[in-house]
Computed example of a mutant assay.
Amino acid sequence: MVSTVMKTETGMTMRSNPLRTYKGISIGFGLLACLLVLGALLVPGFVSSQNARSILLLAAFLGLASIGQTLCALVGALDLSIPYIIGGANILLPSLMVAGLPAPLAMLLVLLLGALVGATNGALSFKLQGQALIMSLGVGFAAVGAVQIYTSLGSQFGGTVFAPVPEWLRNISAFNGKFFGLPIPPVIIIWAVIAIALGWLMHNTWFGRSIYAIGGSRTAAARLGISEFKVWTVIHSVSGAMSAITGMLLLGFSGGGFVGVGDPYLFTTVAAVVIGGTSLLGGAGGYGATVLGVLVLTVLTSLLVGLGLSFPAQQAVVGLLIVPMVAIYARSPHIRNQI
């Protein structure tokens, strides 16, 4: 098993416990297996190919939105602007297309704006780390408010945009045919490719190792010449870009722009990170663990819907799941305390 090693300022070797790294994954797989068994026993058709397709489709959107949240958590931060950037992108894209901008160019512009908002969020949050959580929330409010003002010009429906959605965008997000012989929407393939690429980058590049180094020990990272400000800004920029991508893909899925489409992602991205076992204190976990958390959360939601539970009841069950998970992970000491 792989363990994390770094030198402290006293020259002593600081090594993380391998069990800490894999405990979250083991628990996640156990939860996922239990949920699948319960679903098969209690809900007819739960293990059908059609339901599996639906679960993977919903998981893809949550998984893409959770990329930025995972990167932020690895340095000890949280990004609460994610749902607002998702909602803003969801109504800004059709609004730009209605204004006459070609769809590819409009998507590129929305992506760049999402990255810019994320970078601004990262820079401000870093400078005011004592208020970073509220800062990210404020940046999200400001961004979605600005988009609503723009989309409401000449219209009384600032939070909803009615515009034709390109067929190719619908096919990416909600394709009912076969993609390269597979009966799944391309967005699922996109999610899988990004997840694999991100996993490789996090463990085989200086940037990925810098994220873990900062989360493990800021002092040690600084002495290695790692710029915490640059890393902090870049990961928030990635978070903003992925949120914008998620918002645009959700437009293809729903067929219409609605600013509230991102609301469910305010805490579900955090829940996916926590359930996967990534430490909110930073330095431990990764996107592979978050993928597992996303699957657990999506399968659980599908099971609760199949059992006929109302939305408030679903929230209560998810909350009851998160509390013990946090309690379990909190018992493991942070990497900077393991010498």
Rank of each mutant, 00 (worst) to 15 (best):
residue 1 M to A: 01
residue 10 T to C: 01
residue 12 M to N: 12
residue 13 T to H: 11
residue 13 T to K: 01
residue 22 Y to W: 03
residue 23 K to C: 01
residue 28 G to S: 12
residue 29 F to A: 09
residue 34 C to V: 15
residue 38 L to N: 11
residue 39 G to I: 08
residue 41 L to R: 14
residue 41 L to G: 08
residue 42 L to M: 08
residue 42 L to D: 07
residue 47 V to W: 14
residue 48 S to R: 14
residue 48 S to M: 03
residue 49 S to E: 13
residue 53 R to K: 11
residue 54 S to K: 12
residue 57 L to G: 04
residue 59 A to L: 06
residue 62 L to F: 08
residue 63 G to N: 07
residue 63 G to L: 03
residue 64 L to A: 04
residue 64 L to Q: 08
residue 69 Q to S: 05
residue 70 T to Q: 03
residue 75 V to A: 03
residue 76 G to F: 05
residue 80 L to M: 14
residue 81 S to A: 13
residue 86 I to N: 15
residue 88 G to Y: 12
residue 90 N to P: 00
residue 94 P to I: 06
residue 94 P to G: 01
residue 96 L to I: 06
residue 98 V to G: 10
residue 99 A to S: 14
residue 103 A to M: 02
residue 105 L to S: 06
residue 106 A to M: 05
residue 108 L to N: 11
residue 108 L to C: 00
residue 110 V to W: 12
residue 116 L to P: 11
residue 118 G to E: 06
residue 119 A to C: 03
residue 124 L to C: 04
residue 125 S to G: 02
residue 126 F to K: 07
residue 129 Q to C: 01
residue 129 Q to S: 05
residue 132 A to W: 07
residue 133 L to G: 06
residue 133 L to S: 12
residue 133 L to Y: 14
residue 134 I to L: 02
residue 137 L to R: 11
residue 140 G to V: 13
residue 140 G to N: 14
residue 143 A to W: 11
residue 145 G to K: 15
residue 145 G to P: 09
residue 149 I to K: 15
residue 156 Q to E: 11
residue 157 F to G: 01
residue 157 F to Y: 13
residue 160 T to M: 02
residue 161 V to F: 01
residue 162 F to P: 04
residue 163 A to V: 12
residue 169 L to S: 09
residue 178 K to T: 13
residue 180 F to L: 06
residue 182 L to Q: 12
residue 184 I to A: 06
residue 184 I to F: 10
residue 185 P to G: 12
residue 185 P to F: 10
residue 187 V to E: 14
residue 188 I to K: 05
residue 191 W to L: 03
residue 191 W to Y: 07
residue 191 W to G: 02
residue 192 A to L: 09
residue 193 V to K: 11
residue 193 V to I: 08
residue 193 V to Q: 13
residue 198 L to Q: 10
residue 198 L to W: 07
residue 200 W to T: 11
residue 201 L to H: 12
residue 203 H to W: 10
residue 208 G to E: 09
residue 209 R to Y: 08
residue 209 R to V: 00
residue 211 I to T: 04
residue 215 G to T: 04
residue 218 R to P: 03
residue 220 A to Y: 04
residue 229 F to T: 15
residue 239 S to Q: 11
residue 242 M to E: 09
residue 246 T to N: 09
residue 248 M to H: 09
residue 256 G to T: 11
residue 257 G to P: 00
residue 261 V to L: 02
residue 270 V to P: 02
residue 270 V to N: 14
residue 271 A to M: 08
residue 273 V to G: 04
residue 274 V to F: 08
residue 276 G to T: 10
residue 278 T to G: 00
residue 281 L to T: 13
residue 285 G to F: 00
residue 290 T to S: 00
residue 291 V to S: 03
residue 295 L to T: 13
residue 295 L to A: 05
residue 299 V to S: 02
residue 300 L to P: 05
residue 304 L to V: 14
residue 310 S to A: 12
residue 313 A to S: 11
residue 315 Q to D: 13
residue 315 Q to G: 03
residue 316 A to P: 13
residue 316 A to N: 14
residue 316 A to G: 15
residue 317 V to A: 09
residue 321 L to Y: 14
residue 322 I to Q: 10
residue 327 A to G: 08
residue 330 A to Y: 06
residue 332 S to V: 07
residue 333 P to V: 02
residue 334 H to I: 02
